[in-house]
Design a protein around this nucleic acid. Structure first.
Length: 319
DNA sequence: CGTGTTTGACCGGCGC
DNA sequence: GCGCCGGTCAAACACG
């Protein structure tokens, strides 16, 4: 079986949620999904369709584990599941291709890598606190002695007109590079919070310029500065908004790293007015949101409390 | 003045 | 060793 991510074809007034593995058209982009050197764990693509969902914020998309798609899809009108590979993904099975098997091995590798990462980072921190390299030469030698280790990465593909999508965190751009064989540059962002070394890369798909590929690397060590705890005010509950948290624990372990399983994603989906800007700092964020916390996210896996609450109201509106 | 962006330089990994 | 490429740094700059 050729591991090809299903082409996500937009249909008018529908939301297609697809997920799968690295495909040949995107192999350049998702290089980390393939091969022994892979440090990532697969990816999900979240593509909105039509004007309503072709948007500027990751809040508008639903980071869903494939295993959740069948159960969640019925809750969203005009939602269809695109990728057949979801079954392989969700069932924690290795897709029957050489490429796919590499994903699995890469995942376990990344898992181990991350565990050593954490230890290594802690050791390094301690070491640097007590024994800081005094010269650049020492620093270089020190660096050389340490194998470059990379945090697990996770990528989203989003159909959007703007490159930098709101995700609730504040980012500082620290670089931009031209991508080989692509007319679109890749931007590098770092979380502005101190002691948080989460990075993300943003680039447009060469094959489909309307698709923005956002790759996250690392784990936030702080709550989202743009995500206060949800309070159900009268105005908020009156809004036709959807707010959803998808906790990652349902992701197969072979495909998701330790920390991604522990830390639910905080991306929320809301449908509301407003016009978020492309401001990378996230300061131009105007839409009203209802936020989710990791705690609620975990709970939702079992009782769909918040999701049920909000989605149902949304659906009632639609009906 | 604080914060974020731009952009050329630099570095390290990798293949030849 | 050399060149390519991805990733990062940091000075200069822009902006509110």
């Amino acid at each position: 079986m050729d591991v090809k991510k299903d082409v996500v074809k937009m249909e008018d007034n529908s939301t297609n949620i697809g997920c799968g593995f690295s495909s040949s058209p995107f192999s350049g982009i998702f290089d980390f999904c393939e091969g022994e050197k892979s440090s990532s764990l697969g990816f999900m693509e979240l593509l909105g369709a039509g004007q309503d969902f072709c948007t500027n914020s990751l809040f508008d998309y639903l980071p869903q584990t494939p295993s959740m798609l069948p159960s969640l899809a019925p809750n969203f009108p005009n939602t269809s599941i695109m990728a057949k590979e979801c079954s392989d993904y969700s069932l924690n099975q290795q897709p029957a291709t050489p490429n796919s098997s590499s994903i699995s091995s890469a995942s376990s590798e990344a898992l181990n890598e991350e565990q050593t990462d954490n230890k290594g980072a802690a050791d390094q921190l301690e070491e640097e606190e007590h024994d800081q390299p005094k010269t650049k030469k020492e620093l270089k030698a020190k660096k050389a002695s340490q194998k470059r280790q990379r945090e697990p990465r996770f990528a989203f593909m989003t159909k959007s007109e703007v490159d930098h999508l709101e995700d609730g965190y504040r980012w500082r751009k620290y670089g931009q590079k031209a991508v080989k064989n692509s007319p679109f540059p890749r931007s590098y962002y770092r979380c502005t919070s101190t002691a948080c070394n989460v990075k993300k890369r943003v680039e447009r798909s060469f094959n489909d310029p309307s698709i923005v590929v956002t790759t996250y690397e690392g784990q936030h060590t702080h709550p989202s500065p743009l995500m206060p705890r949800p309070t159900l005010t009268a105005s908020a509950s009156a809004q036709p908004s959807i707010s959803t948290t998808f906790a990652m624990p349902s992701m197969p372990r072979t495909l998701l790293s330790h920390h991604y399983q522990q830390q639910p994603f905080n991306f929320c989906n809301y449908v509301n007015g407003g016009s978020p800007t492309a401001n990378a700092s996230g300061t131009g964020f105007h839409r009203e949101r209802r936020f989710c916390t990791p705690a609620t996210g975990s709970a939702m896996l079992t009782d769909h409390g918040l999701l049920q609450d909000i989605v149902s109201s949304h659906m009632l509106k639609q009906e």
